[in-house]
């Protein structure tokens, strides 16, 4: 009887899961997140190591031609473990897998050499399908050229940001799953079946003490607001019960000067008591800080 219930709940659904075709959202998540999140061999200290970089390209890194509208490319430096659907192409779903092989050449990707992926579209029986493309082979985009073309201002630390979301366990209060009720009218469309192929963990969340975040960047795309809100949520929402995430700034700000948290808190306390009219300025974060990665992930992935 235990075996029967295991068949019904594990074996039968696996046919449904294996036939789920990856959408653009699913491909974007999988390629920008890398192999896995949480603790793993590539990231033993859960600092966001071994994750790919997402870049926004408005110029072709090889030919220098303008790309309009800009496209996303996913840069795997040599040694970065490849995304789950590249290692296990069955995760893409049958149609996307065959497109990825025939047009995208994803079977030629190698962890040792590094890789640059992008997402392209193909027409199959009159329908538009997104598929992963190994741009380092099909278009000659090398890792160095792609990163140099994008520059720091167009590089998004999406993989590292999702890792921060996972290890800070934001999903204890925020869900990534608008519900099939009036809920989605506020928080946006619930995910499609193929929207999480290759994502690990999905971090749906079950206990919502705060708004759903699946489409938060569509509601609020202000990096400055995010900075203030993470440093101390009460700066922008006096009744918020969210914890302060000021520690994600690390020790130094963008100019390399040490951040004086004690001084900041003292000044904030004076503001909170009404002794001064304005709160202290939130420090500008360093380029390699965890908070930058987290905001990158939110503004890039949660649209």
């Amino acid at each position: 009887m235990f075996g029967l219930s295991m068949s019904i709940t594990l074996f039968f659904p696996s046919f449904d899961f294996i036939s789920a075709e990856s959408t653009w959202v699913g491909l974007d998540k999988a390629l920008s997140n890398g192999r896995t999140m949480g603790w793993s061999f590539e990231d033993p200290l859960v600092r966001g190591d071994g994750k790919p970089l997402t870049v926004i390209l408005d110029k072709d890194p090889k030919t220098g031609e303008t790309i309009d509208p800009p496209v996303r490319a996913y840069v795997y430096k040599p040694g970065t473990p490849l995304a789950s659907p590249i290692n296990h192409p069955n995760n893409l779903g049958p149609t996307v897998k065959s497109l990825g092989f025939s047009k995208g050449k994803i079977d030629q990707a190698s962890k040792e050499a590094g890789a640059v992926f992008t997402i392209s579209y193909a027409d199959v029986n009159g329908e538009e399908w997104a598929y992963p493309e190994l741009a380092s082979v099909t278009r000659g985009w090398t890792v160095e050229a792609t990163l140099a073309t994008a520059g720091d201002e167009n590089t998004r630390y999406v993989g590292k940001g999702k890792q921060v979301y996972t290890t800070e366990q934001c999903w204890w209060c925020h869900t990534l799953l608008p519900e099939h009720t009036q809920d989605w009218q506020v928080f946006g469309w619930p995910p499609y079946q193929g929207d999480m192929n290759g994502e690990m963990p999905t971090a749906f969340g079950s206990d919502r003490k705060a708004p759903d975040l699946l489409h938060v960047a569509s509601r609020n795309s202000s990096r400055e607001w995010m900075m203030m809100h993470f440093f101390n949520p009460r700066l922008v929402q006096p009744n918020s019960i969210m914890p302060r995430f000021d520690y994600l700034w690390g020790k130094v700000d963008v100019n390399g000067n040490p951040i004086d948290y004690a001084k900041w808190r003292k000044e904030y306390e004076a503001y909170r008591k009404g002794e001064v009219a304005y709160p202290p300025e939130v420090p500008e974060y360093a380029r390699d800080s965890e908070i930058r990665a987290l905001i990158d992930w939110i503004l890039t992935s949660l649209k």
Partner: peptide, 11 residues
Amino acid sequence: NLTGLTEGYLT
């Protein structure tokens, strides 16, 4: 490294 819906469901 089972991912996506499989992971969400197994969780």
